[in-house]
């Protein structure tokens, strides 16, 4: 066990954990931030994506020690009220069905648009690869990302 000082959604949090404990479980089970979802545990489904600084990472694959002094942003920290442009676009396109994978999808999309404000469709598809949605909301996710990017349809 070791002590890790983390910055989560702008707040300082100290956790006691094994160094290789995945950030996903630190967030969910140690500090009760449940917006980040467990889907596969092996980095293939995308449900657990959070930001380390501006980079989207699969938090099930990042040991807490590897976070270092990078700032962690989870879905709860993207905005306090759903007002981030990506969240607003998600609402406008009525994307979710069951909703479980959406925090990961939204975090990936938000990271993409921060780096590439006007992505092409291929860039969107590439960024959203290995982000499974069993309800099949992909057409609406695509529309929502283009809406958030201000791309004319």
């Amino acid at each position: 066990m070791a002590s890790f000082a983390l910055s989560v959604n702008g707040k300082k949090v100290t956790v006691e954990a094994e160094p290789d404990m995945p950030l996903l479980w630190v967030l969910r089970d140690l500090i009760q931030l449940h917006g980040t979802k467990y889907g596969c545990g092996v980095g293939v489904c995308g449900a657990c994506v959070v930001h380390l600084d501006d980079d989207p990472v699969r938090s099930c694959m990042v040991g807490v020690q590897a976070v270092g002094n990078r700032k962690i942003t989870t879905i709860e920290g993207l905005s306090t009220d759903g007002s981030h442009p990506v969240q607003k676009a998600w609402i406008a396109e009525n994307v979710p069905q069951c909703g479980y994978c959406q925090p990961g999808q939204i975090m990936e999309a938000a990271a993409l648009l921060k780096k590439t404000p006007r992505p092409s469709r291929d860039e969107i598809r590439e960024a959203m690869a290995e982000h499974y949605c069993r309800c099949g909301t992909y057409p609406r996710i695509l529309k929502a990302i283009e809406r958030a990017a201000g791309v004319k349809k």
């Binding site: 980040t36 759903g82 998600w90 609402i91 979710p96 909703g99």
Partner: peptide, 19 residues
């Protein structure tokens, strides 16, 4: 009509079994 759970679902507030 948009889903009644939309806002909770996009902000991470929606409570699933695991939560």
């Amino acid at each position: 009509t948009p889903s009644v759970d939309l806002n909770a679902m996009v902000t991470g507030a929606a409570v699933f079994g695991a939560d």
